[in-house]
């Protein structure tokens, strides 16, 4: 057996040498090896598809391999927790953060990391607005009408799971307007759609890409978008903040996606990444991709991105508290 083991080790040694002379093409100080992009969600979701697209483009811009790693679990907190632990590859590991980062921190107890202090915030890559939609058969033509009705009777809103940005947007709307609303959970947006189309639920705050085609085909009516500015894809639809009812002017949320890294991420890596991302975000392919999602390129980077995350976190903590979601 000893003999066998040593043979095994020999063979393995050989493989290791073979592996270590792999790809090292970059000439700058960073990256010096493959870059890992952690996606804290399962393959196939929006975050995953988007990350793979970005990774693909980053690969050219950085001149190094960018390997996507899915580490799903408990919102996004399992993957994020892993990044927070650091380790030997932390200087070459990025994570695609999303509202799950802040909402997760707001609703999960005793996270093993600090969602702000443990990370370096590189850049917000893409922003997807949520759209407040009702079925076409719904009597409500505007947000005002809806709120008026929702104060009289109970409204059901569908969402794609506890702690999703769709769920939290609904809860935020409920708190800001004082409406009677019941959250009806579904396993993902795909499962939630039929209930909305069929009129089982009254309203939803869905992500733009999920409902855009249904708005176009007239099956759903968009009452408002949740972003700061009107969406270029739905120019006639007002933003919730411009409607100016009650406290709705505070209602600005988007499904944001941005790259973050562990605290120990090197300075040169940070600079290289910003340069690469600036390049990526100007590429035709990237802009096309964003358009297909009904999304817009991210606005903030560095410190501003960090501040954005801090504000987002504070808001969701408040909503989670009021809605009683925090356990």
């Amino acid at each position: 057996m000893n003999k066998l083991l040593s043979t095994a080790c020999l063979a393995l040694g050989g493989t290791a040498v073979f592996l270590s002379v792999g790809v090292t093409t970059a000439s700058a100080d960073w990256p010096t090896k493959d870059v890992h992009l952690v996606v804290p969600y399962a393959p196939g979701g929006t975050t995953d598809v988007l990350s793979r697209r970005v990774a693909d483009l980053l690969q050219d811009a950085l001149g190094a391999n960018v390997i996507v790693e899915n580490r799903p679990g408990a919102g996004s907190t399992v993957g994020t927790g892993r990044l927070a632990r650091g380790g030997r590859d932390a200087d070459h590991t990025l994570l695609m953060a999303s509202p799950g980062h802040t909402i997760g921190a707001a609703i999960y107890p005793d996270l093993p990391y600090d969602p702000v202090e443990d990370f370096v915030f590189i850049q917000n890559v893409i922003d997807i607005p949520n759209v407040m939609v009702v079925p076409t058969s719904s009597p409500y033509q505007s947000v005002e009408e809806f709120i008026e009705a929702a104060r009289e009777e109970n409204m059901a809103f569908s969402h794609s799971g506890v702690g999703s940005s769709i769920h939290m947007s609904g809860e935020l709307f409920k708190t800001l307007t004082g409406s009677n609303m019941t959250a009806v959970p579904f396993a993902g947006s795909g499962a939630a759609l039929p209930a909305l189309l069929g009129g089982d639920v009254d309203v939803s705050f869905e992500n733009m890409p999920t409902v855009y085609s249904h708005i176009q085909s007239g099956d759903l009516r968009a009452l408002a978008v949740t972003s700061q500015e009107r969406s270029p894809y739905l120019p006639d639809v007002p933003t919730l903040s411009e409607i100016g009812v009650d406290n709705l002017d505070q209602f600005v949320t988007t499904a944001w996606f941005g790259l973050i890294a562990h605290n120990s991420f090197p300075e040169e890596g940070y600079d290289a990444m910003q340069a690469a991302l600036d390049e990526v975000m100007e590429r035709e392919e990237f802009l096309d991709f964003a358009e297909q999602l009904g999304a817009e390129p991210g606005q903030v980077e560095g410190e501003a991105f960090k501040q954005f995350v801090i504000d987002d976190l504070a808001r969701w903590q408040e909503v989670a508290e009021q809605a009683g979601i925090r356990q």
Binding site: P72, G73, A74, G75, T77, V78, G81, I107, Y108, D110, P112, G161, V162, G163, A183, P185, A187, G324, I325, Q327
Partner: peptide
């Protein structure tokens, strides 16, 4: 895992791997 309506934990014993 997490309850789908309220998000309360069921038999997770505080283990993050069990939450999903």
């Amino acid at each position: 895992g997490l309850d789908s309506v309220f998000g309360s934990q069921r038999f997770t014993f505080g283990n993050y791997n069990l939450m999903d």
